[in-house]
Design a protein around this nucleic acid. Structure first.
Lengths: 244, 244
DNA sequence: GCGCGGTTTTGACGTGCGTCAATGTCATGG
DNA sequence: CCATGACATTGACGCACGTCAAAACCGCGC
């Protein structure tokens, strides 16, 4: 996943580090931009509709026709499924550089909401697909990306099916840290813009269990709970719990 | 997912119905063969190494280099992940027509074992990739297939994170029935070649809970437990529980 | 038939996490 | 400054599912 670095080295821009979008590359195709030449990037950008969403805004919702594809450029998006009785499972959080609705047919099957304020590049599905058809190597890249997502989903299955509350919370923190590091934020202090309810719905727990578990980790000096986030005091310890 | 039907109508063979492979199509590309012309199918078949595995044989295992791609033609394969302490999560069961190792990079991250006896077409990853590069429409198909798998994985996350034991078992039975129906076995009597331990590890439960839950469903006359399988007596009832 | 090993079922009991409810924290706004 | 409301934490308690252990079942070989 050094792809952005590649691209940035090539263009001399720092679109990877979360500050601004490239002057020549508003679209944040972190995981695939290295496969694209400059003119291809521009072509893709020309197709995109840059859009902003406020906190809690809905990008799309399950069972609705999926006529758009999104590339997140700023902020965080929660992807979730609702059961008829209101139970919710968050199936993922999308960060800058992530694609939404890529590997989809005609329905999403998943809903997406902005966690805080969010910027995206939206594409008409049809136009996007048509462009991709002209760039086979780009399609391969997208396919690899889908494989990566599938692998994350499988890890999440293990977490939900077989791990204790403590292991879930530790994996969550460590996993988030890794993802943030990959897009240029390598701090040991993690921003957690999502609510405890979101974390609980992601980890298959309740608010209370998440809260108690974090308190316990804090008591053990593994983390420090700060406003809107967490500082990892003993990342090795968390990793040990997560890898268990 | 009527694709096999399309292909079979075209070729006049009945490769879809689980009896034999097509005379002209040993490879069972259920989900993609409709995208292929006859000569393309033959080209693909020429690349394949038909292989048989006995019960419990390992097709590949997590952390091992993934140099092959598999197309299941007969039998059932369990895909699972192991935690260091031996806990196991089955992330899926592969049926005839399914691909294994498709959307993968250099490692599988997942292990695969034959449940009973299994036949597959194995491909060298490199050769397979090279062939696919010459057929962009085939790659698109594979990509759609990956999207379908991702969607199944997300459903499984909801199941593991938010559903009761009864809901898990009912969804499992109904889901398996649907998948079997799609490959031509439309009976209300399901073969369950996998052990209770497998079912438990798939559903994030224990053997005992699976057993008790099935017994309860049987007492309620929703199912009838038969040797190595289950007959669905009131599928609507199960579907109601599963959809809940 | 009988014994044997593996799997499944059943029962009695334990516990990790869920539920319910009270309390604390913090931002917002009058 | 206090009132308000949203969210997070904490505590007391309950329950669905896990654990442990004892049958029961089911080929399979002799």
């Amino acid at each position: 996943m050094q792809l952005v670095e590649d691209h940035c080295a090539k263009t001399g821009q720092d679109c990877a580090h979360g500050r601004t979008a490239c002057a020549d590359c508003k679209v944040r195709l972190h995981s695939i931009c290295a496969a694209l030449e400059q003119d291809e990037l521009h072509a893709l950008e020309a197709l995109s509709h840059p859009t902003r969403y406020g906190a809690r805004a809905t990008l799309f919702s399950q069972d609705e026709p999926a006529d758009s594809v999104f590339n997140v450029t700023e902020g965080m998006v929660r992807l979730y499924k609702l059961l008829p009785d209101g139970r919710r499972q968050i199936v993922g959080f999308a960060l800058p550089g992530d694609f939404l609705g890529l590997a989809l047919m005609d329905r999403f099957g998943v809903s997406a909401e902005a966690v805080g304020d969010v910027s995206v590049c939206r594409f008409q599905r049809k136009g996007f697909a048509a462009y991709i058809d002209t760039k086979p190597h780009l399609l391969r890249r997208l396919h690899e990306f889908a494989g990566h997502e599938l692998s994350l989903a499988q890890d999440q299955m293990v977490l939900l099916g077989r791990r204790s509350a403590e292991e879930r919370v530790a994996s969550f923190l460590v996993g988030l840290r890794e993802r943030l590091a990959r897009i240029g934020q390598k701090s040991v202090t993690l921003a957690l813009p999502m609510s405890r309810q979101d974390i609980a719905d992601f980890l298959g727990l309740t608010i209370e269990t998440v809260s108690r578990t974090m308190t316990r980790l804090a008591r053990d000096k593994a983390i420090l709970i700060v406003p809107d986030g967490v500082r990892l005091l003993r990342p090795e310890h968390l990793e040990a719990i997560a890898a268990r």
